[in-house]
Measured scan of single mutants.
Amino acid sequence: MGKSNSKLKPEVVEELTRKTYFTEKEVQQWYKGFIKDCPSGQLDAAGFQKIYKQFFPFGDPTKFATFVFNVFDENKDGRIEFSEFIQALSVTSRGTLDEKLRWAFKLYDLDNDGYITRNEMLDIVDAIYQMVGNTVELPEEENTPEKRVDRIFAMMDKNADGKLTLQEFQEGSKADPSIVQALSLYDGLV
């Protein structure tokens, strides 16, 4: 993909415009910024974590950033290329609610087996709590990752089998306004 070129080839721009919710001009602008920050044309896990640390200076986002990195890194080569970056950004910032929920499901399904187990969710929720640090005051019933996961599973795990399917996750998330709101945070920002 033209590693350190400051412009993408027209056919690449066209393809990314088809695969995302961005215009050709927006794709070019994002590429310019991506190459400025990642001259090699790729972003590794350490660089990704560094970006998260800028956004969450009062907590430790390392663990959460690693989980997000793994979802962005579609081809699992340990690096995020621009096409992976822009497609994930498109879903998280401008995707439909169902697209965002499928993306979030992939984030929580750490072993990619098609289910979110209690332990997988606990890993992610714990990482989120570490990331936000003491900057967020949580209600008593959610002031630990374990309590939050218990509440989520009580609401979403309809067949009580200890794991969530994509359908259970989507339906449960849509029924909880706070989850829908959290997924909409990026709307309109890009």
Rank of each mutant, 00 (worst) to 15 (best):
122 L>I: 03
178 S>T: 15
38 C>D: 01
87 Q>C: 00
84 E>V: 09
158 K>E: 15
144 T>I: 10
137 E>N: 05
139 P>N: 09
31 Y>V: 11
59 G>L: 09
77 D>E: 12
30 W>I: 01
94 R>C: 09
62 T>A: 08
153 F>Y: 13
64 F>S: 11
21 Y>D: 02
75 N>V: 14
48 F>Y: 13
153 F>G: 01
15 E>S: 13
92 T>A: 08
39 P>W: 15
75 N>L: 14
106 K>G: 11
102 R>W: 10
96 T>R: 07
19 K>N: 14
183 L>S: 08
41 G>K: 07
129 Y>M: 02
38 C>N: 09
12 V>F: 08
148 R>Y: 03
40 S>R: 11
47 G>P: 01
157 D>F: 12
110 L>C: 07
87 Q>E: 01
67 F>G: 06
83 S>V: 14
27 V>N: 13
168 E>K: 10
25 K>P: 09
43 L>S: 14
63 K>P: 04
52 Y>R: 00
80 I>F: 12
8 L>E: 10
170 Q>G: 11
115 Y>L: 00
83 S>Q: 01
178 S>Y: 05
29 Q>G: 08
116 I>L: 06
116 I>A: 01
21 Y>V: 07
75 N>C: 10
71 V>I: 03
184 S>Q: 05
19 K>D: 08
36 K>G: 01
85 F>T: 02
91 V>W: 12
13 V>L: 11
53 K>T: 08
69 F>I: 05
8 L>F: 06
104 A>S: 08
6 S>I: 03
91 V>E: 13
151 R>E: 14
46 A>T: 09
116 I>R: 00
163 K>G: 06
157 D>N: 11
190 V>D: 07
184 S>D: 13
70 N>L: 11
9 K>I: 13
68 V>F: 05
36 K>P: 00
20 T>I: 15
63 K>S: 03
5 N>M: 04
51 I>M: 06
188 G>R: 12
3 K>V: 04
117 T>R: 13
147 K>Q: 04
129 Y>Q: 15
4 S>K: 05
78 G>V: 12
101 L>Q: 04
186 Y>E: 07
132 V>E: 05
61 P>N: 04
20 T>Y: 02
65 A>F: 01
94 R>H: 03
125 V>H: 06
84 E>P: 04
165 T>S: 08
60 D>Q: 09
123 D>A: 11
14 E>G: 14
122 L>A: 14
169 F>Y: 02
141 E>P: 00
152 I>A: 08
144 T>E: 03
52 Y>K: 03
114 G>Y: 11
4 S>A: 07
40 S>L: 00
138 L>K: 02
4 S>D: 04
103 W>V: 07
28 Q>N: 03
50 K>Q: 07
66 T>N: 13
114 G>A: 13
166 L>A: 14
104 A>W: 02
177 P>Y: 14
107 L>T: 08
92 T>W: 09
149 V>M: 09
144 T>A: 12
